[in-house]
């Protein structure tokens, strides 16, 4: 694809900007910043990936994965500002989700350890794990606050903090997994997932593309569930003292 085609595509964004300006919708700034950011980020990542793919040396691939986990954890941390020391947990949770699922795919020889397989698939796993961790953090505080009465009754009956927050944790994890479960329900019926679309455009047969997509979806579900659980099991503790006292 030539850069000319990219410019053509960009001109369509400019049409939206002009309409927004004329109709006083106030979207120009967000549209322009978003466009520039996406362009620069993706161009840079395109070249970085090209270098890593050409080098075919594992330390660079691992470094790239670590960088992705780090950025994802930082991003999810923003949702959990009220919970102290959450960053290391996010790092661990997202890292664990990625490590377990990737190891499985490599161990079962589903994909080879080549940057062109490992990095894009990891990107999807880490990205989904990031969204799920952010949702978990966002949700747990609201759940515990809204179930304060129930939690106090349970604690007064001699429940541990874990027992008393059981239903809050359950509701939190359920809502964190909703986007993943929902997308599994409608996949292929409403939209073709990004990876499959990419493979089909790239010339892979639809059946082969579907196989990869199914694989990725299973892995995503596993990674997202694992990550949310690690984050959830850590986060609820932050609302209790070691003496099983509710802090909020």
């Amino acid at each position: 694809m030539s850069y000319m085609s990219l410019l053509w595509a960009l001109s369509f964004v400019l049409v939206a900007v002009v309409i927004s300006f004329k109709e006083n919708l106030g979207l120009e700034r967000d549209l322009l910043i978003g466009t520039v950011r996406a362009f620069v980020q993706l161009m840079v990542i395109g070249y970085v990936l090209k270098i890593i793919f050409d080098l075919e040396k594992w330390p660079y691939t691992v470094l790239m994965l670590l960088f992705m986990v780090l950025v994802a954890a930082r991003n999810a941390e923003k949702r959990g500002r009220s919970i102290q020391h959450v960053f290391p947990v996010l790092l661990l949770a997202i890292g664990a989700g990625e490590f377990v699922t990737l190891s499985m795919m490599l161990g079962l020889r589903i994909i080879p350890f080549q940057p062109k397989y490992v990095i894009p698939i990891s990107g999807m796993i880490i990205g989904n794990a990031m969204v799920a961790s952010a949702l978990t953090l966002n949700r747990i505080q609201a759940e515990i606050e809204s179930r304060r009465e129930e939690i106090l009754v349970l604690l007064a009956l001699g429940a541990t903090a874990r027992q008393a927050s059981g239903s809050s944790l359950q509701a939190t994890l359920k809502s964190a997994l909703i986007p993943t479960v929902d997308s599994m329900k409608t996949v292929g019926l409403v939209q073709l997932p990004g990876m499959m679309t990419g493979l089909i455009i790239g010339g892979t047969s639809p059946v082969e593309a579907v196989k990869y997509q199914v694989l990725v979806m299973f892995m995503l579900t596993a990674a997202v569930a694992l990550t949310s659980m690690v984050v959830g099991f850590f986060a609820y503790r932050k609302f209790f003292t070691p003496r099983h006292q509710l802090i909020v």
Binding site: E149, L155, L157, G158, T160
Partner: peptide
């Protein structure tokens, strides 16, 4: 032991939950 203490000292609140 806090859990044993709370068993020994029962508590009932205003609203029956």
């Amino acid at each position: 032991n806090v859990l044993e203490l709370r068993r020994k000292v029962g508590m009932v609140f205003q609203r029956p939950y």
